[in-house]
Amino acid sequence: MNTVRVLLVEDNVGDILLTTEALEEEHLKCTLPVVCDDWRAIQCPEKKGDYTSVQKPDLSILDINMPKLNGHKVFSRIMHSGFLKQIAVILLSTSSDEQDLTKSYNHYTNCYITKPVAIHSFFDVISALINFGVHQAKLPVNANTSGNAP
């Protein structure tokens, strides 16, 4: 099984399981720690707390609807950390709200996807994301070493 570093920022245990299974379906293993609350979601890209020696991911999938902080604030901080520079940043959210959508693109997400309800669609989406963000998109060779904050 290939290893791909996917940063999954997600607070729903069910979704973590679903995503992991979808990755397995792609014969991929998610190697980055899954970040499951918004404090950790900020710590990880800023390389603080448990994440001092975290490696730069190949792809990031973020759910912005995390409850403690405003999802958009968290997202904005993550984007400002520079940690996700040079890789695809995918927002996978339950919200189909027009304002959430606009705000996310204003904070420079690469792609906003409303979490599909049907299981096969969910797997399709993850598959497409891996295909696009890991296999097809050409990333800078030194992407994994230049992840310092701007």
Binding site: E21, D97, K115, I119
Partner: peptide, 19 residues
């Protein structure tokens, strides 16, 4: 809005179970 989320879990895992 809030009902959507648990329902999605129900559907997803029913789907996964079936699959």
């Amino acid at each position: 809005h809030d009902l959507k989320e648990p329902l999605r879990m129900v559907k997803s895992f029913l789907g996964l179970l079936e699959k």
